[in-house]
Design a protein around this nucleic acid. Structure first.
Lengths: 221, 221
DNA sequence: GCTACGTATTTGACTAGTCAAAATATAGTA
DNA sequence: TACTATATTTTGACTAGTCAAATACGTAGC
């Protein structure tokens, strides 16, 4: 049974790997994401390699094994189901959800998670639009593109926000930018580095920066 | 912020103190209830004394301070609200509830517990009939007496079961002995060491041992 | 080919919690 | 009072996870 520290490392390595386009995660990156010193990360990663959860490439970085990936998906499943519960059932605010879920996910049993999933009606995405892995470990995300890669004058529907930062999320929510909402993409300029949207119901215009738009996935229609 | 180990010790000391009629808890008792060696318990208790959660009387035992009692009540509150949730909302079986609650109670925030309490509709007892302390730390139990201290031919209502052992609970449940159920006390004999009950609806008779009956609290009517 | 800089690793030390086993105190009994 | 059984405490050692600081690589630029 992996300790909650191990679980946390594996989850972070998974998300960093995703972030980096499936290549090795360097120690600096990992240690920063974990909030520990680089030496600590090295020590831990060697241990993770011993138990075959990652493959460690000295002086280069680390990569999840299949076993590690399975654990990561189990953690993601827990995290996302718990987030959904906190938001939809207990009425948490978006900004509060993440920290509490982070602590709970290491304390729940498989039985708990399976019953919770049933109670929530088998949702396939969490409140941020992140897909929830099934109990067998399969995960499928809806077809979507980053908002900064869309053509102008398109009608788009927000699918997912790729960020856990509460500040970012609260800000986006205040612009009604959250999964399910629809907008018209008025303008997207690489030169000014901005994207302008208009909410399809309220017609209220919003302008956001290019890199923020990169963290917003939408489906075009 | 106390560690979950500290939280666990404090909770156990509280319940042992209750069990023992508010006198000092000896190390042997504590170490057995915690599942650690006596030496470990001594070391820990000294530390708990340092941080003023207990007062440690060498070679005699340990007693909670007011600070320790407050922490114990906060833990009991968490435990009982979580148990209620697992049983009533997620549909856990009585026998499964305890272990999962034990792990969760150290991982939840005060915000979580307060929202959960609200969601559950501010229950005042958990599924075993144990009273749930309020967020301010007050606790009040319904008037009740142990079943083995009742006179015969009385109509009694089960109020509370003073035991966490899943086996005991499942067995009692199979006899319909759980909070809210009503029985007629047919016979109570100190000589044979048995108590015989008859369920007031089904009229089915049940005979249980004297010490088991001591762990069943009822209200007479 | 050499140097400098940034990243990675190693080392030694620390904390919390634990155990096994030796040492000590207490209380009951003869 | 002396002895014994039992509870308690002490000691030394171990694990998981961490940090700070010294050290070692590797590569980009000269």
């Amino acid at each position: 049974m992996p300790s909650s520290t191990v679980e946390q490392y594996i989850k972070i390595i998974y998300t960093q790997q995703e972030h980096l386009g499936r290549s090795v995660v360097p120690m600096k990156r990992l240690s920063e994401a974990m909030g520990v010193t680089p030496g600590t990360a090295t020590t831990m990663v060697k241990h993770l390699d011993d138990v075959k959860l990652v493959s460690y490439h000295p002086r280069q970085g680390v990569l999840l094994t299949t076993k590690g990936e399975n654990l990561a998906l189990r953690m993601l499943r827990r995290h996302r189901l718990i987030e959904t519960f906190l938001e939809q059932v207990l009425g948490y605010d978006w900004s509060e959800v993440h920290t509490d879920a982070e602590r709970l996910e290491h304390a729940v049993s498989d039985r708990f998670i399976d019953k919770l999933e049933q109670y929530l009606g088998y949702p396939d995405v969490d409140p941020h639009g992140d897909p929830i892995p099934s109990s067998s470990g399969s995960i499928e995300s809806a077809i979507s593109v980053p908002l900064n890669a869309c053509g102008a004058d398109r009608r788009v529907r927000i699918v997912r926000l790729l960020d856990d930062d509460p500040e970012f999320l609260v800000c986006m929510k205040s612009y009604l930018i959250f999964p399910g909402q629809e907008f018209i993409l008025k303008n997207s300029s690489a030169i000014t580095g901005t994207v302008t949207l208009e909410h399809s119901d309220t017609l209220k215009p919003v302008t956001i920066g290019y890199d923020a738009a990169g963290r917003i996935l939408v489906s075009e229609r």
